[in-house]
């Protein structure tokens, strides 16, 4: 994988939240009412987590008081609701290391070099980090980063290379069109002669095939050949089980994203079947100071519902307050009646 870019000056805050899905976003609200500041880290480039990544247009029917709302709308409403607390977002970054400092605070680092020092960590990472789907081809991991790439960072990497692109969505088609002029050869493979990509991209791709500038095969990648992480060719296989060889220096699989627990597994937190066990009064993991809420947690009776994540956020915030402000008394107040809460919300 990529090396972290240079380490930046650490940011100090009250709470660092991993995951900007509904549970992470609502945490900002509950923490904000208690005057606790939050920074959020998310591997995606925008808020909403699964709601915006997987089903932005699908209606959700079980959010209290919103009879019907799409994943996108829910995210927009949460963003509006937490605006008064001006959280800081670190999008497109993966939380990849957590360290306890000698003063009891935590240092959370990301793959982009961001360092956040906070009294409390909240893991609201849902099903984990969204990561590219890895085709089930034996040994593919030994070529990752050298010959197998799940994203194009620099087009120059592919100049004068025999490039093989696998997939049939917009990313596959866009990169086919963009890399065709600079690659030595370019082959697109997809399991059918049809695509879920924008029609004009499909038309352009078909033109290139007709002009014999690129190749297209209805096939899948069955085996990779090469040495020391350097790809030299692949075996393709058709639906009729026929197989053939193709020279290739680079493979770009584009099958979308899936959730993997990722580096959280190495944070030293006790896990049960890839979920974080918590107590249901504080929503704290078995490591004091590390809280967890939403789909990533487990407790007797846990339901993976957005509304449960909201409840868990509220209780987490109460417990987090005592860690962040050990010498202050926490007074429970309602937003309907408390002028100090209303002031924080910017409504009075």
């Amino acid at each position: 994988m990529d090396q972290p870019s240079e380490v930046q000056t650490p940011i100090e805050t009250d709470v660092a939240i991993i995951g900007a899905g509904p549970a992470g976003l609502f945490s900002v609200f509950e923490l904000g009412l208690l005057d606790l500041k939050a920074h959020l880290v998310d591997i995606l480039d925008r808020p909403g987590g699964q709601c915006t990544e997987l089903y932005p247009e699908k209606p959700i029917y079980d959010i209290p008081a919103l009879p019907i709302v799409t994943g996108q709308e829910l995210t927009e409403r949460l963003m509006e609701q937490i605006k008064p607390f001006s959280p800081t977002f670190h999008f497109g970054e993966m939380a990849n290391a957590l360290e306890r400092l000698s003063d009891g605070r935590w240092k959370l680092s990301t793959d982009a070099g961001t360092q956040i020092i906070a009294r409390v960590i909240v893991i609201a990472a849902g099903g984990g980090s969204f990561m590219p789907k890895r085709p089930p081809v034996p040994g593919i991991e030994t070529y990752e980063g050298t010959s197998v790439h799940y994203a194009v960072r620099k087009m120059e990497t592919f100049r004068c290379k025999n490039v093989l692109i696998a997939g049939g969505g917009d990313s596959a088609l866009d990169w086919t069109l963009n890399l065709a002029p600079i690659a030595k050869s370019l082959t697109l493979v997809h399991h059918r002669d049809g695509f879920r990509a924008a029609q004009h991209s499909v038309n352009q791709m078909r033109e290139l095939v007709e002009q014999r500038k690129i190749n297209f095969h209805v096939a899948s990648v069955k085996a990779l050949h090469g040495e020391g992480g350097k790809l030299s060719g692949v075996t393709l296989s058709g639906h009729d089980k026929s197989e053939w060889h193709l020279e290739a220096d680079a493979l770009l699989p584009f099958f979308g994203l899936t959730m993997k627990l990722g580096p959280i597994a190495d944070f030293g937190i006790n896990l049960h079947e890839n979920l974080i066990p918590v107590d249901t009064t504080r929503f704290e993991s078995e490591t004091p100071g590390i809280f967890a809420i939403g789909d990533i947690i487990t407790y007797p009776g846990k339901l993976k519902l957005i509304l449960s994540g909201f409840h868990e956020a509220a209780l987490m915030a109460q417990a987090a307050f005592h860690i962040c402000r050990p010498n202050e008394k926490l007074r429970f107040q309602y937003t309907t009646s408390s002028s100090s809460l209303q002031k924080k919300l910017g409504v009075s």
Partner: peptide
Amino acid sequence: EVDMLDMALAVQPNS
């Protein structure tokens, strides 16, 4: 569903 199968891995005619 046909569109979404484009995001699946190792698709076969009986997928």
